[in-house]
Simulated scan of single mutants.
Amino acid sequence: MTDLDAEQHARAVLEHACAKAGRDATDAEVVRLGENAIFRLTDGVIARVSRPGQLAAARKEVAVARWLESVDVPAVQVADQPDQPIDVDGRAVTFWLELPPHEHGSPVQVAQALRRLHGVVPPSDLDLGPIQPFVRLAERIERASTLAEADRDWLRSRLAELRKRWDDRPGGLPECVVHGDAWVGNVVSTADGRVVFLDLERVAIGAPEWDLVHTAIKYRSFGWIGESEYQAFRTAYGHDVTNWSGFELFRDIREFRMTCMAVQVASENHRAEEQALWRLRCLQGQHGARPWNGWSALP
């Protein structure tokens, strides 16, 4: 499916949902086409159109956003729309208040936001569930139409290995509320001085190290930040996940997830094929030891 096809399909879903919700989809502007299709409506509300089969995740995300607002943890806020998500042929549509201008959070800002989130008492009336480190990975591998079968077999074997290692993972810091996908694109600094969490569908109960490893691999695996930035991050949080015995496991799972995401995108957008294959070859040991150069944002 081309980007144009994906946009047309998502726009049709959006128009149907807006008709149900009493909102105007006329001239809705595409913000991003990715795991979700993101549109800006003319009233400043942001609409998210999920892939098929994500209704439960969207329900959870809406509930988590409302809970975080109630406990004063800055996060993206649900728009005034009582019946969310709206189901359109198995695709979930949700509506959100648009943030003011914002940029990726700095390592220190991410650390401070995570400390605040990790210290919140879990909700008594909302089952966040445990971390799900392997959600959607098998499906992404099976849909990897741009890969040779030998590469898909390698990914299947690697997934099985990681599952086994996860079952035997060591203990660490006390379990708490975690964001679940705490890369800097999901922890943003706004023009009005807030540091805000986005993409809340992976919020769960589990090891705080799961959130900390995102920033650690930016330094250790990809060289996206320098030593001083990482030192500032670990000082601001008060813990260095790279000294924990489970770090390599969490690192490996995160790198694998990033690779599977690239493989999925490449199946829909040929511009991502080179990046997907580069990531895969790194995991297979064909580009030497970490840090690996060449990991870049997906188109």
Rank of each mutant, 00 (worst) to 15 (best):
L173N: 07
A58Y: 07
D83G: 01
V135S: 10
W210R: 08
G226I: 02
G238K: 05
R59F: 01
F39S: 00
A28L: 13
A25F: 00
F222R: 10
E103H: 10
E98R: 14
V64K: 07
F233R: 03
L173S: 10
A148H: 07
V71Y: 07
A150F: 09
A216P: 11
V241I: 10
H287Y: 13
A56L: 04
H214V: 04
R152K: 11
A236F: 05
D72V: 08
E274Y: 08
Q264K: 12
H118L: 11
G171S: 15
G34N: 02
F222V: 02
H179I: 11
H118N: 13
G119L: 00
R257N: 15
F197R: 10
V62T: 05
A25E: 12
F233M: 02
S70P: 12
W244P: 00
Q77Y: 04
D3M: 05
G180H: 03
Y219W: 15
Y237H: 09
T190K: 03
V177L: 06
N293P: 15
M1A: 14
W292L: 13
C282T: 05
P170V: 06
V263D: 09
R40G: 04
E15C: 13
V78S: 03
P82Q: 04
I205M: 15
G34Q: 00
R290V: 15
A56C: 01
R32C: 11
L298S: 07
D199A: 11
A144P: 04
A92I: 06
T190H: 01
R165Y: 06
L68N: 13
I46P: 01
A262I: 02
R51F: 04
A207I: 02
H118D: 14
E161S: 11
D72A: 14
R163P: 11
D125M: 08
F134W: 02
V93Y: 06
R48G: 03
W154H: 12
V108L: 01
G172I: 11
C18H: 07
I253L: 12
D87R: 10
Q264M: 15
A297V: 12
V31W: 09
Q84D: 15
H118C: 12
A289Q: 10
L277N: 08
L298W: 03
A10S: 15
W292T: 09
S157V: 06
L55R: 06
P133K: 01
R156A: 14
A10Q: 08
F197L: 15
A276H: 07
E149M: 01
W96C: 14
V188R: 09
W244K: 03
R163A: 07
Q84S: 12
L41V: 11
